[in-house]
Design a protein around this nucleic acid. Structure first.
Lengths: 186, 186
DNA sequence: GTCTATATAAAGATAGAC
DNA sequence: GTCTATCTTTATATAGAC
């Protein structure tokens, strides 16, 4: 029988890497098993040996990002200060920059939403934003929290996409400072 | 013959409205003609009387947003100040909030990129961001420009999505102020 | 572990009746 | 202007050989 549990092999890892690239570029719905197989240089059936469905590929891809976001939401619930939360969002976004486009692909979100075991990534974001807004926030404070979150999330994604390597320290510092300025009332 | 040039009717408008909703929710690739026809209560062929292809529906949907962004890029090229540019982005994003998810759907961008007549919306964004960064910008200034743009674009989308109606004046003012703070060096 | 072949469903799109 | 019926392609997924 198989020493590989059909889950730890290098081929599986390559499939995930290819799927991630294609789905980031074309979205989940726009990426077919055939396309992934072509990139891998094998047949469609070859893919199905490693994953029993296309959704399982998505699950495998998003497990880590979802867990990372859950961790940030947890820290928010425990009263972590805004600078820490925003810094964590910046670092996570930069670390997962290969996933850029993923969190904003409607078909990915839709497929993800249909899988109950994957706790909703958007609901975690809402909780983090609520934490940034502080207790009993005014309407203006809520808007500032959204603004700061946008800087840490989409702003970081933009900066990371523009530079070939990872986020540099000065870039990170500048993003965090900008997010904090956005959060601060005058 | 047809007084309607097969382009001005109410049915066509309904198709576009339904397509916009579905594509915002599921992405371009994830939305089928059959799905649109179901929502409309007609057959697939009925759709094809009004549009000769799925891509033509996308073109029709995105013509206005693309033009609006081109206009902002034009004002940026003519040296409009940051407050004006950021305000314009906020207003545009709020006005087109029904399109939320659209500009971030990879399959939409991909399909749009394959249509040469639709000038690339992302390249316009890059130009606006460059204008925000100012002449001969430092690396830090470029990051701040991205941050400010993120507030005006994604921050506004988030606020608009959270509130049922359009963006209120206080919300708009708060977003613009936050974007300008993000843009400003200490 | 990967292949060919195939089943089955859904996609985009057209022909022609009404 | 909308229908049914159909064509063609592509999609997910499986069966069974090697």
């Amino acid at each position: 029988m198989n020493t590989n549990e059909r889950g730890t092999g290098r081929t599986r890892a390559r499939i995930l890497e290819i799927a991630r690239e294609l789905m980031a570029k074309q979205g989940y719905a726009g990426t077919s098993i055939a396309h992934i197989a072509n990139q891998l240089g094998t047949s469609k059936a070859g893919i199905y040996y490693h994953f029993k469905s296309k959704e399982e590929i998505l699950d495998a891809l998003l497990t880590r990002p979802v867990l990372a976001y859950a961790d940030i939401a947890e820290r928010a619930a425990q009263g972590a200060p805004p600078a820490e939360l925003l810094g964590a969002i910046i670092d996570l976004t930069a670390e997962l920059k290969e996933f850029a486009g993923f969190h904003s692909d409607p078909s990915t979100l839709l497929a993800l939403g249909e899988r109950p075991q994957q706790s909703d990534i958007q609901s975690k974001q809402v909780r983090v934003i609520a934490a940034l807004a502080g207790p009993r926030p005014s309407q203006a404070a809520r808007v500032r929290a959204r603004a700061a979150f946008a800087v840490a999330s989409d702003g970081t994604a933009g900066v990371a996409a523009a530079s070939d390597n990872g986020l540099t320290k000065p870039e990170r510092d500048e993003l965090l400072a900008a997010a904090l300025r956005a959060l601060q009332p005058r």
